[in-house]
């Protein structure tokens, strides 16, 4: 039962990654690309983390996975913000 649930979470997470990657490749400008890659990948990573945490043997491992997920989410949000801001400034300058 737990295996099925974990599998469902992992597959859902991978679908989000797939959607994010398609968005990154197909969307027209940098803002919508950033939107696709950060939002979809963060959701995908969260689902993936939940799936793997369900399969983990110890609580220590679950906490480590949660920590990893949090670090990745914070880093990617800030990186997205910086890339978008840099691009906005270059547009302003001409």
């Amino acid at each position: 039962m737990i295996n099925l649930l974990a599998g469902a979470f992992i597959i859902a997470g991978l679908l989000f990654f797939l959607a994010g990657t398609v968005g990154l490749l197909r969307f027209p400008d940098i803002y919508s690309r950033l939107h696709a890659v950060t939002k979809a990948d963060n959701a995908g990573l969260g689902l993936l983390a939940v799936g793997i945490a369900l399969l983990a043997d110890t609580w220590r491992l679950v906490l480590l996975i949660a920590l990893l997920w949090m670090v990745a989410v914070i880093a990617s949000s800030v990186a997205c913000h910086l890339v978008a801001r840099h691009h906005l400034r270059e547009e302003d300058q001409g």
């Binding site: 670090v71 914070i74 880093a75 949000s77 800030v78 913000h81 910086l82 801001r85």
Partner: peptide, 15 residues
Amino acid sequence: DTPLVPVLVTAFAPA
């Protein structure tokens, strides 16, 4: 000049 970078540094550098 963005508040996010100092927060990121404060949160991540010690870790």
